[in-house]
Nucleic acid binder design. Structure first.
Ligand code: MN
Ligand code: MN
Ligand code: ZN
Ligand code: ZN
Lengths: 140, 140
DNA sequence: TGATTATCAACAAGTCATGCTAGCTAACAG
DNA sequence: CTGTTAGCTAGCATGACTTGTTGATAATCA
């Protein structure tokens, strides 16, 4: 994702107004590695800006997603998560606490076997599930 | 997944009654490579057994899932899909028509890099997205 | 300053999945 | 064969997540 300053410029250029709400969300996403849901991002935002609406958070995330500034990741466990890291990367998910980490896989493109003649692969999504070190430690 | 006959035995052994509805679902899933949703499975079932309820389809799929006879796959696009293939395999999804194919990846376990010391990986899920041959042909 | 757009609140709707009730029916043990 | 029990269906409700709508207010930016 671009920096908050670059996003301000980009929004203005596209005819979107630069509101305090949008700027707040830009800042909260900047360098954010937590893979937050709209809801959790809203909670953090509401602390710094009481009165901001969940609807606006969803709206701004959709705009950023449409612009390719964030990706939205469906890990198949509840709400969609948003990721300002738009590099080619994959995810490691702790089944216990739900924490999500970025990981990079070098063996791509992967080879596969199957009855799928003529299929053109455009993207590959890998999710590793397991138990993080902290959860392993707590349950020991 | 076990054969319908084996499932009948297994259900009986666990104290579950063997009803025509359950047996129909066993048969519809047997060798099924379509990765159906509960809804689509219900539609097929209802043709052969008018009056069967969607609730019962969901219920039986949950039971089979709890028994490990089917896996449920969340591809992040709408409803969960059910898969009687419980081998270690992955999926290829056409972004256009939504068809899902089984694929087998040999390079597992995959290596990855990232700041994830001590994480114990229990499972890996790979989804390849792209365009199937039929959709490529139609759009050409 | 003025036109445009965003925001908010409140409410609705849609999708997917599950829960609950009541009454009827069917399975299976004895 | 029969009684007990479980499962079935219809109908309605709930829940999580997400998006749409409307109308009033406020802020942005040319
Ligand atoms: Mn990420
Ligand atoms: Mn499969
Ligand atoms: Zn954990
Ligand atoms: Zn296709």
């Amino acid at each position: 994702m671009k920096t908050p300053e670059e996003l301000v410029a980009r929004f203005r250029k596209q005819g979107y107004k630069v509101t305090p709400q949008r700027q707040l969300i830009f800042r909260l996403l900047n360098g954010n590695t937590a893979h937050p849901t709209a809801e959790t991002l809203y909670e953090v935002a509401a602390q710094q800006m009481p009165g901001i609406s969940l609807r606006t958070v969803y709206q701004t995330l959709s705009e950023l997603s449409a612009m390719g500034e964030v990706q939205h990741i469906d890990l198949g466990s509840g709400a969609v998560r948003f990721d300002p890291n738009v590099d080619d990367h994959h995810h490691l998910v702790c089944s216990t606490c739900g924490v999500v980490h970025d990981v990079y896989v070098n063996q791509t493109p992967l080879h596969f076997e199957g009855d799928v003649e003529g299929f053109a692969v455009h993207s590959t999504r890998i999710v590793f599930s397991g138990e993080c070190a902290r959860c392993a430690h707590l349950s020991a």
